[in-house]
């Protein structure tokens, strides 16, 4: 796992990906920081943080799209899969490399908070809990991106499909609203209600929003972590079944 993690980190920085990701993330977050916080002259960063939710959603597929697709395309996966390491080690090495890369991006919020502290009082608890929220969100999203990447040889397709899937996950609470308000015959109402509740329960935004308000909910943490575990497990299964084909 360590060897793969180090190689992945090296590959991020020897390719344009790390630079593109960091530049776009820093510029986007910088503009949002100015527009939603500095220009109003307030020290409340909550609208700024909710914008970062969308930045993560757009940029995470960039970090994960090549993780397995490229290996398959270049046939380098043959080297990994015949090396004396477990499939789980391979998947986690790639997963954590993308997660660390992502975290280097989101850590910028502490810089913004420092800047803000020069002009007013910053509630550091809120900043830290937002950082945790972004981190957990990334942890879940990256596992999805890596999983999608293991399914295709084409990086571009991996990016698009990941984006689509993450988008559905991001707007789950809106979809839940639609389902809830749908006009259906009376006997179906309990079912529809249950579906809507279920969709709300797996909504990423609702849980993210709780964190941005400084509400630290252990069940939400568990939700994100187990979500990531499930998708990493699925990636291992994909690699495993590919052998049997």
């Amino acid at each position: 796992m360590g060897a793969i993690f180090r190689r992945e980190m090296g590959a991020f920085f020897s390719s344009p990906i790390a630079y593109v990701y960091l530049t776009v993330f820093y510029v986007f977050s910088g503009v949002c920081f100015y527009l939603f916080t500095l220009s109003y002259g307030i020290s409340d960063m909550s609208s700024f943080f909710s914008m970062l939710f969308w930045a993560g959603f757009l940029l995470i597929p960039v970090l994960t799209m090549r993780s397995f697709s490229e290996e398959k395309m270049q046939k380098t996966d043959q080297g990994l899969l015949t090396a004396p390491i477990s499939l789980g080690g391979i998947v986690l090495g790639k997963y954590f490399a993308a997660l660390v890369m992502y975290t280097i991006g989101i850590a910028i919020i502490f810089v913004y908070a420092l800047i803000l502290s020069a002009f007013g009082t910053v509630t550091w608890g809120i900043v830290v809990s937002n950082f945790i929220a972004l981190f957990l969100l990334g942890a879940a999203f990256i596992s999805v991106g890596v999983f999608i990447s293991s399914l295709t040889e084409n990086q571009f397709i991996a990016y698009i499909i990941s984006l689509l899937l993450l988008f559905v996950m991001c707007v789950m609470q809106e979809l839940a609203g639609l389902v809830e308000n749908a006009s259906v015959p009376e006997i179906f109402e309990p079912i529809v209600g249950a579906v809507a509740t279920g969709m709300n329960a797996i909504s990423f935004y609702n849980k993210f929003y709780d964190f941005t308000c400084g509400l630290f909910d252990l069940s939400s943490v568990l939700f994100y972590v187990s979500f990531a575990a499930v998708f990493n497990f699925l990636t291992v299964r994909v690699l495993e079944t590919r052998r049997w084909k």
Binding site: G10, A11, G79, L80, A83, P84
Partner: peptide
Amino acid sequence: YLPELPPLYQDMTVMGYLNFVYDLK
């Protein structure tokens, strides 16, 4: 194992790659 197509990472140096394989194994 040397597969039909050597599993080389195009973006690495030869030494970097061999070090990676050393760690991998």
